[in-house]
Structure formats: structure tokens, C-alpha cells
């Protein structure tokens, strides 16, 4: 396979569109799940809250305005084909420019501060993004983008479980994390779980899990069964829509895994609100 040239401007245009689209148009997987949940709820308040979420998502899509005012910190998972050469610029600069254009021209909120502890001065264009890049075989670039709101990000957790904890330990940590979060992360939530790897790998897997459609189960039937079981358990907690009680606390549980060390079993839980926004494209 010979080298393929992609212009930096093509990357920028693609990233810009991903962030605008994901903030205006909720995925069909989420919208369908919320509509189903509204029919199944028996409490008037829960039905009312889900009804507001449905109306909200319709307004956002029709008027092309953000679903939520927290349009998030820009997170990208990139599979970068090793035969791709960027011309007229560089890859990361092109991505940052796409984020900048989406957030400034698309009426998205600028929510990033320059320094986490001391200055906390808004960068005014929502950059920098958080970019996870993997070099893969091929001549294409695949980008999965998500705008991650921090109401739910702040409710996320990681624990370095050890092997003897077993699947019961994994379940307990995930359920405890969701119970602890309670009403705060804007339920109904999507629960992204990363299991295995190292400390940082588990966290990255959990984020990646939130960017997968809730209609696509884990490819390993054992984990797919665990996803279904956890969803059922979480929806028995009665946290409910907006934390006001009801059968719909989570819309989906997505698990991603990776091989790990003989001594470890890291588990990360990245919680996403009902405005679980992500889009992908291939260049």
C-alpha cells in the first residue's frame, strides 16, 4: 500500500462537523431508549421528566442548537492509518482547529480553562481537546468524537481491584459508583465501564465505552450478559430520571476490556448523562 495524502483542512472540516452534529443531534439509540422508557415509567414525575428530555432533544435538532448548555470538553479517539501523510499542516493542529471552529462558529459553550488549579482562565475556544490516537494499518483515519459534559464526568470513579475480587467485585464497584452518583450526573445515564489494562488504560476504555452505541453489546457474550445484568440492577435502584425516582436510571451499560497483569483487575466507571453525545467519521 502506498502513502495517501490527506489535507489538514479535510481533518479540520470533519472534526468541526462531528462536534457540531453531536451537540445538536442526539443519537437514535439514546432517543429510542428514552421514548421506550417514557412509555414504561409508571410515575407521573418520571414520565414528565422523560417527556421534557424528548421535547428538548427535538427542539435542539430542529433548531440546530445544543442539547445541553454543557457542550463538553472535546474528546477524540483516532485510528490513524500508518500510510496517511498530512499535507498543508499537521494532524493535531488540524484537529484543534476543527474543535475551535465548531465551538466558536457553532454556538457551543466554551468550557475549558487553561490551568486546572491556579489560573483557571477560559481558553475561549474550548481547546485543547483530549486526543487518543492509535496508529493502525491502512490509509484511512477514523475519528470518534464526543463532547463530554462534566456533571457526569465528576461522578466517575476508578478502582484497582485485584484478581480475587472476581466478577462479584467488578459488579459491586460499578453498582456502588452508580449509587454514589445518585441524582447528580443527570440520569438516565449511560455507564461506560473499562476493565483491565493498567490504571490509565482502564479509564480510557471506560471513556471509549461511553462513545459506543447502547444498541451494540460487547462482542463477548459473557460481557454482554454482564452489561444486561448490570443495567437491570441499576434500574432497580429507583434513582430514576433526574434522580426523582423511577425505573429508568440507566439507558445502557457498555463494557470494554483489555488484557491485564497477573496481579491486577482495574475497573473504571465513566458515567455519561442522557445527553450522551458522540459521532464518528472515516476519512
Amino acid at each position: 500500500m502506498s502513502a495517501r495524502e490527506i489535507k489538514a483542512g479535510t481533518i479540520t472540516a470533519c472534526v468541526k462537523k462531528l462536534f457540531m452534529d453531536c451537540n445538536y443531534f442526539i443519537g437514535d439509540d439514546i432517543m429510542n431508549a428514552v421514548c421506550r422508557a417514557q412509555k414504561e415509567e409508571t410515575s407521573g414525575l418520571a414520565k414528565d421528566v422523560l417527556g421534557q428530555i424528548i421535547d428538548n432533544n427535538k427542539i435542539a435538532a430542529a433548531e440546530e442548537i445544543p442539547i445541553c448548555q454543557d457542550t463538553g470538553m472535546a474528546v477524540l479517539f483516532v485510528e490513524y492509518g500508518d500510510k496517511v501523510v498530512i499535507s498543508e499542516g499537521s494532524f493535531e493542529e488540524a484537529v484543534e482547529e476543527g474543535v475551535r471552529q465548531a465551538y466558536t462558529e457553532g454556538y457551543l459553550r466554551k468550557s475549558v480553562v487553561s490551568d486546572p488549579v491556579f489560573d483557571r482562565i477560559n481558553t475561549k475556544d474550548n481547546t485543547p481537546a483530549v486526543i487518543h490516537t492509535r496508529i493502525v494499518k491502512g490509509d484511512k483515519i477514523k475519528i470518534t468524537a464526543g463532547g463530554k459534559g462534566f456533571g457526569s464526568e465528576n461522578m466517575s470513579a476508578i478502582k484497582m481491584l485485584t484478581p480475587s475480587a472476581g466478577v462479584e467485585g467488578v459488579k459491586k464497584f460499578i453498582l456502588d459508583s452508580v449509587a454514589y452518583a445518585g441524582p447528580n450526573p443527570c440520569p438516565p445515564i449511560v455507564v461506560g465501564v473499562g476493565i483491565g489494562g493498567t490504571f490509565e488504560k482502564a479509564a480510557q476504555l471506560a471513556k471509549k465505552a461511553t462513545l459506543r452505541s447502547i444498541d451494540t453489546p460487547n462482542g463477548d457474550e459473557r460481557y454482554a450478559a454482564l452489561e444486561r445484568e448490570l443495567l437491570e440492577e441499576i434500574n432497580k435502584m429507583d434513582i430514576g430520571p433526574a434522580g426523582l425516582g423511577g425505573k429508568t436510571t440507566a439507558l445502557g451499560v457498555n463494557i470494554e476490556t483489555y488484557p491485564t497483569h497477573i496481579a491486577g483487575m482495574p475497573v473504571a466507571v465513566n458515567i455519561c448523562c442522557h445527553a450522551c453525545r458522540h459521532k464518528e467519521c472515516e476519512i
Binding site: 435542539a60 448548555q69 459553550r109 456533571g151 465528576n154
Partner: peptide, 22 residues
């Protein structure tokens, strides 16, 4: 407790839901 998104032309205010109170 809110930090609104920017208003599009013709809108009084951009999307403006609540943020976490704690």
C-alpha cells in the same frame, strides 16, 4: 446555577440548563 451556551442570532439566550448544585 447556570452557564448558558451562546445565543444564536434571534434568540434571547442560548441553551441554559442547570449545573450541579453541590
Amino acid at each position: 446555577y447556570v452557564g448558558a451556551a451562546p445565543a444564536k442570532p434571534g434568540y434571547a439566550v442560548g441553551p441554559c440548563g442547570p449545573t450541579s448544585s453541590y
